[in-house]
């Protein structure tokens, strides 16, 4: 199932929450939607699965625009995990899942094995009112999987989880994808957390899509310089001159370290030249840009 967004905009009065966004989500891929709070990620996710309608633009599923009935059918294949949901304090976890299974037309038996991995039976027997934030998020994920979806849409799924909870969450997500190669669209503002888990990343700011592609494509497209750090015994003007000749910029010596930025297209030249002079320094480290740097580079 291929999902296409064509020139989607969403206005709330004067405020443009989403501004002319076009993108295609391929079957089986895992797409990360990143951007700061208020960048329009949640609104775009809601439009994507028909919770709200765009002010302008079209959502196409397998190349076709959906009718009212078409949206209803489409939602049968979507699992959605909103960022903030506290559920009903007076119901147990199991009763909550049974309610949403009936509403979605799914059944607990379809995901029973997976359910035990996500949330224990002991916890499911307890009232949701006594759940921690982490337990509620697990329940939230379980309800999203109730209808055995083809597309899983997760809005800031690890928000409020501690590092252990976050790691467990991604392990569970991996297990889910091992059982069924479903499409996942996941939003987050914690960039480092998702960069190694995504096939592609879409970067949003002020409602607009600033960049989309694999990490590699984004790095190349943005031509973010590498950072090179050479550990010296004492200041070495020969090495500084060499770096300058090979195209390094922002060359700076500080506290025994020679620091420089290397434009993406010059990195091989610079590294080769420096390695030829390896007897002149003690150590060398090269740092590639993280998604964070890509993200802020885009902004």
């Amino acid at each position: 199932m291929v999902l296409e967004l064509k020139d989607i905009s969403k206005l709330y009065g004067e405020i443009k929450a989403v501004d002319s966004v076009s993108m295609e989500i391929e079957e089986g891929e895992i797409l990360g939607l990143v951007g700061p709070n208020g960048s329009g990620k949640s609104t775009l996710l809601r439009i994507m699965i028909g919770i709200i309608r765009p002010t302008s633009g079209r959502v196409l599923v397998n190349g076709e625009e959906l009718s009212e009935g078409g949206w209803k059918d489409f939602k049968r294949s979507v699992g959605y995990m909103p960022e903030r949901v506290s559920f009903y304090d007076n119901l147990t976890g199991m009763e909550t899942l049974q309610l949403f299974a009936r509403v979605k037309g799914g059944g607990l038996d379809r995901i029973y094995g997976l359910l035990q991995r996500i949330i224990s039976e002991e916890v499911l027997r307890r009232k949701v009112g006594g759940y921690s934030k982490g337990m509620r998020q697990r329940l939230n994920l379980a309800q999203a999987l109730l209808n055995d979806p083809d597309i899983l849409v997760l809005d800031e799924p690890t928000s409020g989880l501690d590092p252990v909870g976050t790691r467990e969450f991604y392990e569970i997500l991996e297990e889910v994808r091992e059982r069924k190669r479903l499409t996942v669209v996941l939003s987050s503002h914690i960039l480092g957390e998702i960069e190694d888990k995504m096939d592609r990343v879409a970067v949003m700011k002020n409602g607009a899509l600033k960049a989309i592609g694999s990490m590699e494509t984004l790095y190349r497209g943005l031509k973010i310089p590498l950072r090179i750090s050479i550990t010296l015994r004492e200041r070495d003007e020969v090495l500084e001159g060499l770096l300058q000749r090979e195209g390094a910029i922002d060359i700076n010596y500080k506290n025994g370290y020679l620091l420089a930025s290397v434009p993406w297209e010059k990195k091989l030249n610079v590294i080769s030249a420096v390695m030829e002079e390896k007897e002149r320094f003690d150590d060398l480290s090269i740092r590639e840009p993280s998604l964070e740097e890509v993200f802020f580079g885009v902004h």
Binding site: G50, V85, G105
Partner: peptide, 14 residues
Amino acid sequence: EKGTLELFLASPIS
């Protein structure tokens, strides 16, 4: 307030 409205709106019901 509970956030469950979104779950209903994302479900295959009118």
